[in-house]
Design a protein around this nucleic acid. Sequence first.
DNA 1: TTGTACGCGTTATCAT
DNA 2: ATGATAACGCGTACAA
Lengths: 339, 339
Amino acid sequence: MANEEVTIKDIAKQLNISFSTVSRALRGHPDVNTETKKKILELAGKLNYEKNPLALSLRKQKTHTIGVIIPEIANTFFSSIISGIQHVAYEAGYNVMICLSDENFEREVSNVQHLVRYRTEGLLVSISTETADFQHFELAKRKLPMVFFDRTWENGGVSQVVVDDYEGAFTMTEHLVEMGYKRIAHLAGPKNVQVTKNRLQGYLDALKKNNHAIDENLIVFGGFSQEFGSEAIKKLVDLAEKPDAVFCVNDRTALGVMLVLKEKHIAIPEEMAVAGFTNAPFSTIIEPNLTTMAQPAFEIGQISTEIMLRHLQEEVYQPEIRTLKTQLLIRDSTLRNKS
Amino acid sequence: MANEEVTIKDIAKQLNISFSTVSRALRGHPDVNTETKKKILELAGKLNYEKNPLALSLRKQKTHTIGVIIPEIANTFFSSIISGIQHVAYEAGYNVMICLSDENFEREVSNVQHLVRYRTEGLLVSISTETADFQHFELAKRKLPMVFFDRTWENGGVSQVVVDDYEGAFTMTEHLVEMGYKRIAHLAGPKNVQVTKNRLQGYLDALKKNNHAIDENLIVFGGFSQEFGSEAIKKLVDLAEKPDAVFCVNDRTALGVMLVLKEKHIAIPEEMAVAGFTNAPFSTIIEPNLTTMAQPAFEIGQISTEIMLRHLQEEVYQPEIRTLKTQLLIRDSTLRNKS
DNA sequence: TTGTACGCGTTATCAT
DNA sequence: ATGATAACGCGTACAA
């Protein structure tokens, strides 16, 4: 592969002038003769000259790149966020470098190191389910501004963009109560993730407020996956006192639940209602359609990036926490005639 | 934000030796005293020294980065491919820089320019639906190796990783014939994309082989979207001679079709069968489950990257075309008792 | 074995 | 208005 890129030196040589003049002309410096400037721009155009971003970055100590770390990409929620990030970054002339942690702690650490070494100017992060230690972020925070989204570093003194998980879970649980369900189970996420805690708390508080007894047997911790949902529901339906509704930490878990219930010919919602969280695309495809809380994924990406752009202008990092509203979408999986 | 990164000069100064010795030691050059080497490595470790990849890239004219251009990311097919790419690239110590064309030609051109300027060492590309002119790729091809996947540059003399769209469509159409469907429609993709042409041809040839008449009215060109599917099927069901089966260019289109059919209370597959292509996650969620051709998305990403890694070792670019097998997944949306 | 000098492509600060 | 020179951080041929 040929690699004969045109440089300012080439232009200077052909015009018999010094390359610093060329540099000035090319970047619109006022102190340059109108005629020579014209000549330079012409030749540059003819030779298809393009600035070398690598040299520029080294010189200016600026890469004009924002680093992103997410747990996985083959997931509509995260890929929509990425889409939002890319759109805003692109408009502002920033590049985006995406790394996947694969829900793996070591890999997340290595991602952070890589992006810091690479002199990305800021980090947009959603942590892995394994992450309990935040030292790698502590280090990174000293070098560049960070914005966490969805799965965040709660006490890190960093910017965060989250949805109101507590309120969302509270609202959803109250919806189930209002529909007349008496034994409402909760499939919770992985224990160390803040999202899990907030949604659990919303669930608990809504039950308390409505004078529902809290039954530990109806709360199962686990993950965000469909498999977790399937496994968990199998245990719940074997209980002596079965639940009559299941509020799942997210839609994928709810999917796992629904598929098992269908397999076992347990009618949804007549025998058992199911609710999710996220508003994944399939939630309007599955039958019955899944009741869920919409999370504005694309917007999360946009806002996170907007906050990052602000940080990149700031003298001192001023963290900001933005909480986005969720929206209750009542569908058939919880909609039955009150008894 | 502090930016006092440790350089080889700092280490050299502290040890009163020249920085070239430090450079040598750090990179395992043999000609360096064992003791000084030890000292250097120790101090480097203590100071948390890390090579500056920017300087390294400028110096070596190698960025160790592979560029990727895809039409969209909020799509399981593409995000699974990305996942496959990242995995292989990561293992080989390569970085990945992802750009989205957003199905937009100008943006694709700008993506190519950016990645070339940025000195990514190779390009992995799936073209936008708008792309009919390949000049930007012609230019890029002179500078770095390229591998196209799924939506490729057919006559570009470049490496390609595709699934056997022709055979897949042929097999699917024959399946419909075998099931006894008589008027099989085809919702085709956008006209200029090769995927569209291949699937259409497979459909046509299968009909011919089985002595089915080809009815132009039953072939509708359009896009890859759910909306296209919905619009197209609305016209087809209004036909005097309705189809009794619809083979869609992909699952999303099939989804659009199915939702409209359900709305109109047209029974699937009894009154009209529906088949897709891709094996999107929702195809086992929708009812009836969608008959489709599985495309190995993750594998497409892996293989594309493996081929790219080979190119990066080669003296001269030797393009290779890899065709992956699809797999027919017969589900309820086409499964009816033969009449 | 180690140090010197130069180059990668650019910007910025001096002079002139 | 222009040119020479240093610097960004690193690697390497050549000299010592």
